[in-house]
Structure formats: structure tokens, C-alpha cells
Design a protein around this nucleic acid. Structure first.
Lengths: 244, 244
DNA sequence: AAGTGGTCTAGACCACTCT
DNA sequence: GAGTGGTCTAGACCACTTG
């Protein structure tokens, strides 16, 4: 590729900002899939006809935004999605608290999403969606009840196969079976009380106080690809925030 | 000051890291008080005998850490402490939710701190401390009950004068009367139920579910200068976190 | 040894703020 | 207009990783 790549920077935008935006487009378009290394700084600087320092600023910006990861001596890599069990950050269940909770799918249906979920997922009203209900246990004790909505047909592969074989973490399944990489999530926390059905599953009395975590998860391109409601015993809730 | 300032950088530490540490010491020591402008980049670069870009990295680092604020065309300033009403970020009370809640001091005592509070404040056991109890109201309705522990003699000025004249925000009072600037706070969120006394103050039934926010606040030098427990109706609790 | 990102230099010019 | 931080350049050398 001997030709120079050109970036047009809108007035008021810095050149490294425009470069970051251009690289973001190339990443999101799939030119560099998750886990893949992007070209070296020197290569990019030559491609775009800018100084090394400028392309560095652009890459640092993408790294701050969590889109890429820089490793000295190796290169710059497109981030793999979230894989951990971030829901446990909100709860403390007994001694085994820092292990990944076990997971059991209670229900799997394809149906029209209620209006608020459809809006969250960015689809029209009554969009056909996949709904999962899931029980998570810690040390064999029921801990969390989850209702998960996923847009179709993107998640159609999850309608087939035995959910018992998915394992305890969902996001790696999203990546392997559907090619969806969760990069960012927004959790909204509130308190309420358990309905009869959820209480039965969690082996708590109906009306027991519970913490409610509403999650919206987003992929590389910024699309919302999951709307989830998690319920757990309010007394096990525990979270720390730092303010600056 | 014609002589060059020297920084010794420990092995493995970058020069800008060492410069940032040196500047941090000068700020914390009081050489540049909060709100004050620190010398210009060019001046500092000459003082320390390094390139402009290097001193810039050091200042950017301090800005990331929240110790200074950079304003184009004006200069680099030592941060004033937090002044807002950050506790309201956790609750939603009616329509007037985004206004600063009103504040009334219910009690003010000087007494020995219980062990956990003394530990939090970094003092010995039974350290003499100032305890405030405080009711915060929104739209005239009781909303939050707070118990606040402050180390003595640092906060001795608060033992005198009429608390009713302190205003609705406490941190500006800390700064004006005690010279303490709160730069950072760590909040731990949990769930519980109201004791009889707190319930009466909040006009809720005893045993009503409540959210509990445990705050530790820190000053410029990183000392813990406040331990606070805030209680509010669990149904009004509402918080959003972004995960990456 | 070759290739990567991390640090550092010594300039230049620009955008913004204040007087 | 003088002074500030923000952007950009074109180099140099270093630390780390991999073959």
C-alpha cells in the first residue's frame, strides 16, 4: 500500500483525534478483529503521513477508551470482550465469594420484547427477542436470579443446543457462538422486594428485600446487545465507589 | 532561583514519574495551596533541566490523579476540594432531586471514637473525635440521616459557633474553618434496616429497609479526615455504574 | 537480532486568556 | 501583546518480547 491514507479532520478537531476516529472505524468494521494486532506505530505513521508522536496520541486515546490494549515489545491489540463475572462485584456470598458462580438456565424462549426492553436494545416495538431465565448458585446455594433479553436474529445460535453445556459465564458463549464481543456495560442499581416466583427460585420468602441490577451491555460498535435484570438478597449486596 | 532542581529517580521509574512525585510533595507540603497556580511548564522545565515534553507528561499525570487542573491559556492550578453534594448521586427524592438537600445538625459531641472509626481515621484506639448527627431534607421532607466522625484537634473549630449557620454543604465549611480540603472519597454501599431512633427522624417505621452509604474522605495528603454513615430509604436508592 | 512500544529531546506553531 | 497550555514534528535511545 504505497498510497497515503488521508484523514479529514473537522474544524476544531485535533489531528490525533481524527486519526483515532479513522482507526476506530477500521476496527469496528472488522478489518482488525478482536485479539488481532493492528499495524505498528511506525507503519501507521508512514501510512497516514504523520509523525510518530501523533499516531501515538491517537492509539493512547483508543487505549483509554478501552478499544485497544498496548503491550510493550509486542504490539497494539484489539481488545477481547469482557469475560469475567462482573455481577459478583455487587454481592458477597459466604466464603467462596470470589469464585465464579455456577449457572443453570431455567428457561429459554423466543418472543416479542416488552416496550422498555425493545427500546433498550434499539429495536422497534415488539421486536422478536430471545429471553433467558437463569439461576446462579454459589457453593450450591441459590444466589442470583437473572432475566436476560437478547436481540434476534443476532443471537439465534443460542436457540439451539443444550444450554447446560454453555458453562458458567455467558459472555464467552456470546463471542464463540454469535461473534458478539461485549466491551462495555452499564449497571443501574436499586432495591426492591422479591416476587413469588423469584423468591421460590432463590429459596427466600416472598417479599424479601432484594437488590436489583439492571444491566445494558454494548459491543465494539457501541450497539446495545443485552438487557438484563439480576435479583439477589439485599443483605448480600455490597459495593464500593471511589469519587474524585 | 538560578540553581537547577534535581530529582533522583528510583531504578525502574521514568523521569516524568519522578518529576510528578517531586511536584506532588511540593503541593502537599503547602508550597502551592489549593486554588493556587503552579509555575508554567516552561519555567518548571528550566528549573528541573528537562525538556518541555517531559514536564508535560508529569503534569498530565498529576491531572489524571486529580491533584491539579489544567486550563488552556491560564495555567495549571492545584485543585480545590470537592464542594458538591455527592451523596445525592445515590438517591432520588421526588422532583427536586437534583437540588442540594437542606441540612440540620441534630447533635454535636466531642467523645472517644469507637474502634472501627478510630481505625478508619488512622488514629489510635479511643482517639478523641468530633461526632455530628445530621438530618438532610429535600423539599421539606426528611431524606437522609447522617452520622459523621471527624478527628480532633484538626476539626476543633467546628466545636464552636452555631451549626445552623454552616449552610447545606459541609465540605466548604471544612475548607473555610479548618483548612481541610477533601479531594477524594470512597463510598461503600450496603443494605440494612432502620433503627428506632433513625426511623423516627426520617419519619419511617422502625425496621424499614434502608440503604447505607459508608464514606471515608481523604485530603490532599491522602489522610483520611472523615468517616460518615448515611442512611436513606432503600426505595429511593438509585445508582448507575459503567464497567469496562 | 529484529521488531515492538516507552521515554525523552528540542524545537515549532496554534488557540486561548488576560490586561 | 504577552503568557499560558495544546498540538505536532523528526529525530534519538531504551526496555521488552519473540524468533
Amino acid at each position: 500500500m504505497p498510497t497515503l491514507r488521508l484523514v479529514e479532520s473537522e474544524p476544531g478537531q485535533s489531528r490525533y483525534g481524527a486519526l483515532a476516529a479513522a482507526l476506530r472505524v477500521r476496527i469496528v468494521s472488522g478489518e482488525f478483529p478482536p485479539g488481532c494486532a493492528i499495524p505498528a506505530e511506525a507503519t501507521l505513521a508512514a501510512d497516514y503521513g504523520v509523525a510518530l508522536g501523533t499516531i501515538r496520541r491517537a492509539l493512547d486515546l483508543l487505549a483509554e477508551q478501552g478499544l485497544v490494549e498496548r503491550i510493550q515489545g509486542r504490539g497494539t491489540f484489539v481488545k477481547q470482550g469482557l469475560t469475567g463475572a462482573p455481577m459478583l462485584r455487587f454481592f458477597r456470598f459466604g466464603a467462596a465469594s470470589h469464585e465464579t458462580p455456577q449457572s443453570r438456565i431455567l428457561a429459554r424462549d423466543s418472543l416479542a420484547a416488552p416496550p422498555d426492553v425493545a427500546r433498550a436494545l434499539g429495536g422497534g416495538p415488539g421486536e422478536q427477542s430471545l429471553r433467558l431465565k437463569r439461576l446462579r448458585t454459589v457453593d450450591g446455594q441459590p444466589a442470583l436470579h437473572e432475566e436476560i433479553w437478547l436481540p434476534l436474529p443476532l443471537f439465534a445460535p443460542l436457540l439451539e443446543g443444550d444450554p447446560a453445556r454453555w458453562g458458567d459465564l455467558l459472555y464467552p458463549v456470546f463471542a464463540e457462538l454469535c461473534g458478539v464481543h461485549v466491551l462495555r456495560a452499564v449497571d443501574t442499581i436499586g432495591f426492591g422486594s422479591l416476587g413469588a416466583a423469584q423468591a421460590r427460585v432463590l429459596r427466600l420468602p416472598a417479599g424479601h428485600p432484594c437488590a436489583r441490577v439492571q444491566r445494558r451491555a454494548f459491543d465494539l460498535a457501541g450497539r446495545c446487545i443485552e438487557s438484563r435484570t439480576t435479583l439477589g438478597d439485599a443483605n448480600a449486596f455490597h459495593y464500593t465507589v471511589s469519587i474524585t
